[in-house]
């Protein structure tokens, strides 16, 4: 079965060191919701880097949206990146831009006009509880507020694939609940979601989510469900 993401025997090595990820094989069906778990240093962030096209694998095959991205010329990568939303663990907000401009950035890069983006950006900021902080720069926002701006930026473009690295690490339980509800809503609209987290409470909130557990750079898939996921009911 062809999924939105396919990994086959993927390995990742930084420089000449040992492999950070080894023999990773899985398929993400369109519209799937996965939690990526594992101890610190297991390779979760590295796996996400491969998914959001910040790294090319050292070996193996990766197909994204039906195309081989390992051998794809880099000039085509921006188009693929725009179909992916990413919530970085360290937020990675542009420090010189306001919360509004940070959230609007993916739309501006995609060529959306100011008139068209204003409504969605304000709506998204209001949704993450930052409607009154639109003009604030990241340095003046708390860690939780920065994380919410990062989440708003990741989802503003309605990505086909949403990747989040510890997205609720800096927010209170109430906000964590709202954010995971947002992810669930996006997932119901068809967005494929991968959330890397240690938060077991979070995992329990999405009943239909599948687990991907990494351990020492290897993906645990004893039943082969990750490699060959069952078809989702229509």
């Amino acid at each position: 079965m062809g999924g939105i993401v396919q990994f086959e025997n993927v390995g990742l090595r930084y420089g000449t060191g040992a492999e950070t990820l080894s023999d990773i094989s899985f398929t993400l069906a369109a519209g799937a919701f996965h939690f990526l778990t594992g101890p610190s240093g297991a390779g979760k962030t590295s796996l996400l880097k491969l998914l959001y096209l910040a790294q090319r694998p050292s070996r193996g095959l990766i197909r994204l949206f039906g195309e081989d991205i390992v051998t794809m010329p880099r000039s085509r990568l921006p188009g693929f990146r725009r179909r992916i939303g990413v919530v970085f663990q360290d937020f990675r907000l542009v420090p010189y831009l306001s919360a509004y401009d940070n959230v609007a950035l993916p739309l501006r890069l995609a060529g959306v006009s100011e008139k068209e983006l204003d409504g969605p950006v304000r709506e998204m900021l209001a949704w993450v509880g930052l409607g009154n902080r639109a003009s604030a720069r990241p340095a003046t926002l708390s860690g939780g507020e920065q994380q919410r701006v990062a989440i708003a930026r990741a989802v503003i473009g309605r990505p086909e694939l949403l990747l989040a690295d510890e997205p609720t690490g800096n927010v209170d339980p109430d906000m964590a609940g709202r954010l995971i509800h947002l992810f669930d809503a996006l997932n119901k609209l068809g967005t494929t979601i991968v959330v890397a987290t240690h938060d077991v409470h979070l995992i329990g909130r999405i009943g239909h989510a599948q687990m991907m557990r990494l351990d020492r750079g290897r993906l645990n898939d004893p039943t082969g469900m990750l490699r060959h996921p069952p078809a989702r009911p229509a």
Binding site: L53, A54, S75, R81, R92, L93, V94, L109, R153
Partner: peptide, 16 residues
């Protein structure tokens, strides 16, 4: 560099 990396990951082209 950090701003450029973020822009790249958000889908900015080299020309942008």
């Amino acid at each position: 560099r950090s701003t450029i990396d973020v822009m790249h990951l958000l889908g900015a082209t080299d020309i942008q």
